[in-house]
Simulated assay, not measured.
Amino acid sequence: MSSTRLYDTIGATYTTTRRTEPRIAARIWAALGDARTVLNVGAGTGSYEPADRHVLAVEPSALMRSQRLPDAAPCLVGSAESLPFDDQSFDAAMAISTIHHWQDPIVGLREMRRVARSVVVFTHDTTDTGWHRRFWLTRDYLPEVADLLVRRPSLTELACAIGARLEPVPIPWDCADGFLEAYWRRPEAYLDENVRRGLSIWARVGPDIEQRVVRGLRADLASGQWAERNRDLADLDTAELGLHLLIA
């Protein structure tokens, strides 16, 4: 499924479930440094776009573009792999929770590097130890996620492609942005249909697997097995779940 079709499938709840998380936003905006002109690639509904800079957005999905607020940055139709701008057109380019949907993340990142003097990307580590085995949802309930990572570039390969440094981003337990790992200490959230509709993973694995995960998680919550298995999470305010900034 292409990224455009995917977001046209899952994007209807984005304005309610995928909001800017202020603590992550602070990290992203700090990484932008003194950039005054910013290109937001794979911009979605406009989360994390800094209000105090001149932002231009690029987004392929019509559904996502339709949910941008009237005062959001102007948004063009386009994809990361072929950005319609001259070299060094922007002070910075940013991409937030999107590159795992690109057809060719390496090409997209190099395009961002071409059109901007600096690049800031928020993404996850898709290696087995960095994501699949670290996060209880994928480890205990959704092993199929490993199949989705086959032939995808590693975080190190992504960083090397644009000469980026890596900065881990701990996820607060009450994260406002409902990406996949956001509810690591609030497992009941994954039983909520509206929450799940804002997560691309379910469109990728299909409804049968989704309902199997929901049934298994519901049973483990009711029996106390989830709490026992994940008792080390109860007192944590943040968790390292493989989320990183790539800064170049």
Results as ranks from 00 to 15, higher is better:
Tyr190Lys: 06
Leu191Gln: 10
Glu111Thr: 04
Arg229Tyr: 06
Thr129Gln: 13
Glu59Leu: 00
Ala72Arg: 03
Met1Thr: 07
Arg5Lys: 14
Glu240Asn: 08
Val150Met: 11
Tyr48Ser: 02
Glu21Thr: 13
Val55Thr: 12
Asp8Thr: 07
His244Phe: 01
Thr13Ala: 15
Leu6Cys: 12
Asp174Leu: 07
Asp147Arg: 11
Pro153His: 13
Ala92Tyr: 05
Thr129Cys: 12
Arg229Gln: 12
His54Ile: 11
Asp147Phe: 04
Ala95Thr: 12
Phe90Met: 02
Met94Trp: 14
Gly33Cys: 08
Ala189Gly: 03
Asp71Asn: 15
Arg186Asn: 13
Val205Lys: 09
Asp208Thr: 14
Arg23Tyr: 09
Glu188Met: 06
Gly42Ser: 06
Asp71Met: 11
Ser118His: 13
Gly42Trp: 04
Val38Ser: 04
Ser118Lys: 10
Ala219Asp: 12
Leu243Gly: 11
Asp52Gln: 12
Leu109Lys: 05
Ile171Asp: 03
Arg18Tyr: 10
Val119His: 01
Tyr141Ile: 14
Leu217Asn: 00
Ser3Arg: 04
Cys75Ala: 13
Val121Lys: 01
Thr238Gly: 07
Val55Lys: 05
Asp34Asn: 04
Leu6Thr: 09
Ala12Ile: 08
Ile201Ser: 04
Arg19Lys: 15
Leu217Gly: 08
Ser82Gly: 11
Ser61Gln: 04
Ala43Thr: 06
His132Val: 15
Thr238Glu: 15
Ser47Pro: 09
Arg134Lys: 14
Gln67Leu: 10
Gly42Lys: 00
Leu158Thr: 06
Met1Ser: 09
Asp8Phe: 03
Arg212Lys: 01
Ile106Trp: 08
Leu246His: 07
Asp208Lys: 12
Thr4Trp: 02
Ala176Cys: 09
Val169Asn: 01
Gln67Ser: 03
Leu233Met: 04
Arg5Glu: 15
Phe179Gln: 05
Gly163Ile: 08
Pro187Asp: 00
Ala222Glu: 15
Glu111Gly: 04
Ala222Thr: 06
Arg36Ala: 15
Leu246Cys: 07
